[in-house]
Amino acid sequence: MNVYKRELKSGIKSFLIWTISIAAFIAICIGMFPEMKGKMDSVSDIFASMGAFSSAFGMDRLGLGTLLGFYSVECGTIMALGAALFASMVGSVMVGKEEKGRTAEFLFSLPIKREKVMGEKYLALITEMVVFHIIAFVISLLSILAIKEEIPMKELLLLHSSYLILTLCLATICFSLSTIPSCSSVGMGMGLVLFFYFFNLLANITEKIDWLKFLTPFSFTDGATIVLEKKLDWTLISVWVVISLLCLIYGFWNYKKRDLKS
């Protein structure tokens, strides 16, 4: 597990920056809730009547005056988008950096198979993402306790599970695409995530074209649906898990068969 350990060690700085930043945002956001709770009842009515804008963020179905409504709209956006950008940033350079940094010749002149290098790097990526989500979840619970609100455990678990699955899917897709040298860049990964995110906002607005939601993984993190129905959309999740796994298989196959740049 030499490569796995090295990846975790070399990525520790950016991991801490992202984890602390996102956790701090969530804590601040939850900390603002008691102050805004009373005011939000009237604001919620305004948001609910804003048509497409409120549909895009699910505010037409969830009241911002409740903890769950506030959490899934405000904290949910931070969590889903922040975690997805972090996943894309780490995933999209983890493989390609060896060739870009010209260390591939050193690494692959050691007795290790390419598949093993890929496998350990992927495992390091997944480890970072899972630990990131565990920390974010614990901070959320502690923040809710700090403002003396009751913890809606089931809904929170469902919401955070959807963010975790989203992150793992996007990390996998970016990781796999980065085995193509021209696709291995932070810009490419972040661009893909932002495209999916804004596509999700569009899909939320145009409810008549239902299949649009299958084109973005952000659709299964929709807070309003999860909170109101108290369940995850396993059809959408399955579609994106299968897409991610197919990308991963392609990534391993591509990295194994192609020439490495010096």
């Binding site: 090295r6 070399s10 010209r102 260390t103 010749e105 050193f106 002149s109 050691l110 290790i112």
Partner: peptide
Amino acid sequence: MEGIGYLPSEAIFY
């Protein structure tokens, strides 16, 4: 690779 020692023309490490 187990039996090879390789020195590239430009040795680049982390």
